[in-house]
């Protein structure tokens, strides 16, 4: 957790790496069976092994399923697209962003890629960075600092 006084950034979740070039996701991979997890582990759900290594997850994948949420808990902006992306064999939960949230623009099987964007700044001036997946044939750049939402 290196922090500088100005323009400090933190990832929304620990499995998002933003301070090592292009942002990417990491998983805890079981050294005995290869099962991958994004949360802090006590042991492996597949084989009960207790040794894990941190591995980089592919940043491109295929949208395996999605929903368009129109009704959510108070304070959550709607509509948004929630889905699961198959990133080269590792399933990742995330929102589909940078496209219209309707069934004409989002379809199962579409290629998507990881993107990041700021979600706010705390009182110390630290910016939190979230991730989502955007259509891989999207016309805009893959800038990791989109600047606006």
């Amino acid at each position: 957790m290196s922090q500088t006084a100005t323009s400090a950034r933190v990832p929304l979740v620990e499995y998002l790496v933003i301070d090592d070039g292009d942002p990417y996701l990491v998983a805890n991979e079981c050294t005995s069976c290869g099962a991958r997890f994004f949360d802090r582990r006590n042991a492996c759900a597949s084989c009960s092994g207790t040794e894990f290594t941190r591995v980089r997850v592919a940043s491109e994948g295929e949208l395996r399923t999605f929903t368009i949420v129109s009704f959510a808990a108070p304070g959550i902006p709607v509509p948004f697209v929630a889905g699961v992306v198959d990133c080269d064999g590792t399933s990742v939960r995330g929102n589909v962003v940078n496209t219209d949230p309707d069934p004409d623009h989002v379809r199962v099987g579409m290629p998507v890629r990881l993107t990041t964007f700021p979600i706010g700044t705390d009182r110390d001036g630290t910016e939190a960075i979230a991730f989502g997946f955007e259509p891989a044939d999207h016309h805009t750049s893959t800038s990791t600092d989109a600047g606006s939402e």
């Binding site: 979740v13 395996r64 959510a72 929630a82």
Partner: peptide
Amino acid sequence: GRFGAVASTDGRIGTNTMPGVFAQIGME
């Protein structure tokens, strides 16, 4: 928490709502 989240992830990383979860199950 177990994901080391600095803010709520519901709505930012997918959805926790039951209609949303089961919608994805049908779409899958």
